[in-house]
Design a protein around this nucleic acid. Structure first.
Length: 290
DNA sequence: CAAGTGCCTTTATC
DNA sequence: AGATAAAGGCACT
């Protein structure tokens, strides 16, 4: 099956899967292979045509954020030269709608790790506790369910190389399994309320919550502030803050909650209801500038 | 080569 | 409230 793209309907598959928002995609030749929930599939982009097998167009439009009105979003977030450069260079990068459960565990794992290490941890977890499937002679593993991880010992989880995160994964899985908690239900609730709910899971602080809100729950106003965004704000947006505040966050390696909230609020007020898109473009642009 | 730093941070404790 | 330390392990300098 295929979807026809255009200038008024832009999408760039490579940028979208390569910008570090999802961790379990693999490129083989010109096809990208992925697994979402129980389904493995492949997809490629040939200029303005998107081709895929084993999933329908409705799923693709949902998962890859193709229902977001990107031209409208650009018109709202392109308010300075920095964001303009990022939007021009990576035009077509879209925010995914990942599975919330996988996204939650992924970003619990992501704390204090780099992207290759995060990929490795998630691969290990999936290989050990997910189900093996195959598509087009491509083997993959589904992401382990809350039930499966709730029943897995901390020791076994730790064997996947997740370190101290093992107990957070275990406790979060048990909370969801025990209360029959439906993360999908959070899609219908507002940003603030949902963030408060996510913060009750162990291993989930403000940054992880914002990532889950943005990358899986469709809260496009979420503005995750990681170490890169902190650097970006200090580098390009320092004039929006008192000198003393900048000095303070420069002097420490990690942000206090109050400092995080201040940077996060800046992002949301400055870029508006699609601040998450601004965040991801700035993030990817800065990371690829080296 | 050893030791320090950084990695899409959170939690516990004072 | 704010500061500080600890928590895998690996790549890089």
């Amino acid at each position: 099956m295929e979807i026809q793209l255009s200038n008024s309907y832009p999408f760039n598959l490579g940028f979208t899967l390569d910008c570090g928002q999802a961790f379990r995609w693999n490129k083989r030749g010109e096809w990208w292979y992925g697994v979402v929930r129980e389904k493995g599939f492949k997809i490629r982009q040939v200029s303005s045509k998107l081709e895929f097998e084993n999933v329908d167009a409705d799923f693709v439009k949902d998962y890859f954020g193709l229902r977001d009105d990107l031209p409208k979003i650009f018109s709202q977030i392109t308010i300075d030269k920095h964001i303009k450069a990022a939007v021009e260079k990576f035009n077509g990068l879209r925010i995914l709608r990942q599975d919330p459960w996988e996204c939650l565990i992924s970003y619990i794992c992501a704390t204090y790790k780099n992207i290759p290490a995060i990929r490795q941890m998630l691969f290990n977890l999936s290989k050990k506790f997910g189900n093996k499937k195959a598509f087009n002679s491509y083997e993959f593993h589904t992401f382990p369910t809350p039930t499966r991880l709730a029943k897995t010992s901390i020791k076994e989880l730790a064997e996947c190389g997740v370190g101290y995160r093992a107990k957070y994964i275990s406790e979060t899985a048990k909370t969801i399994y025990g209360n029959d908690f439906k993360l999908e239900g959070l899609k219908k609730k507002g940003y603030e309320k949902t963030r408060r709910e996510l913060l009750t899971f162990p291993g989930v602080g403000l940054k992880v919550a914002d990532c889950v809100l943005l990358f899986s729950l469709g809260k496009l106003e979420a503005f995750p502030v990681d170490t890169w965004l902190k650097r970006i704000i200090i580098k390009y947006y320092t004039s929006h803050f008192p000198k003393e505040f900048i000095k303070k966050i420069l002097s420490k390696k990690s942000l206090a909650n109050s400092e995080y909230k201040r940077l996060n609020l800046f992002g949301r007020r400055n870029f508006g209801r699609y601040a998450g898109y601004a965040q991801e473009y700035l993030y990817h642009f800065e990371r690829t500038q080296c």
